[in-house]
C-alpha cells in the first residue's frame, strides 16, 4: 500500500538543514537561546559556506530517508564569496533537477537566507516547510 497524504498521523517529516558557521548557524542558535520552538525532526549541519554543498548530497539525503532539505544560506552576507548567493542558487537548481530526475518533488528542497539574528525567520521557515512536507507525505513512497 502506498502512503497517502493524510494517512499517517504520526508522520514527522525529517528535515536536513544546511547552515553556515558564521552567518546562519548563529541565527539558528539564537532561536534556541530564545527558546523558540520548531519541530525536533529538523536537524542542522553547519558548514563554512553554502556554496560548498554538493547537489548530490541533497539527493543522497532524500534517498536515505530525509523528507526535505533546507538550505539556510548567507544571502548577501557571505564573507568568503561575493557571488555566494548566485552560487548557492545554482547548487539548489541543480539539486532540484537531480531530485526531479529521480522522482522527488523539487519543492522538497527549500533555500532561504538566514542572517545571524534571524531566529524568528528561521523557525517560521522550518515550521512552514515542515507543514508543507507533512501534506506532501514521505519522500520515499511505498
Amino acid at each position: 500500500m502506498t502512503a497517502t497524504n493524510n494517512e499517517s498521523k504520526d508522520y514527522a517529516p525529517k528535515i536536513l538543514a544546511f547552515s553556515t558557521n558564521n552567518i546562519s548557524d548563529p541565527g539558528i542558535d539564537l532561536a534556541g537561546s530564545s527558546h523558540m520552538h520548531y519541530p525536533t525532526s529538523a536537524m542542522v549541519f553547519s558548514m563554512p559556506c553554502t556554496s560548498g554543498i554538493k547537489p548530490e548530497w541533497i539527493l543522497y539525503a532524500m534517498e536515505k530517508g530525509f523528507d526535505g532539505v533546507f538550505i539556510a544560506s548567507d544571502g548577501e552576507e557571505c564573507a568568503y564569496l561575493p557571488d555566494c548567493a548566485e552560487r548557492s542558487a545554482k547548487i539548489a537548481e541543480e539539486a532540484q533537477e537531480l531530485l526531479r530526475e529521480k522522482g522527488y518533488e523539487p519543492k522538497r528542497l527549500r533555500m532561504s537566507a538566514i542572517c545571524s539574528v534571524c531566529a524568528e525567520p528561521f523557525t517560521n521557515q522550518i515550521k512552514d516547510f515542515y507543514n508543507m512536507l507533512k501534506n506532501l507525505g514521505p519522500a520515499r513512497k511505498g
Partner: peptide, 20 residues
C-alpha cells in the same frame, strides 16, 4: 550542539529532543 540547537529549541518535547 545539543543545547542551542536541541534542548533549548525543544523545551516542549523531551521525547523528540532526546531522539534528536
Amino acid at each position: 550542539n545539543v543545547r542551542e540547537q536541541c534542548s533549548w529549541a525543544h523545551t516542549d518535547d523531551r521525547e523528540g529532543a532526546t531522539d534528536k
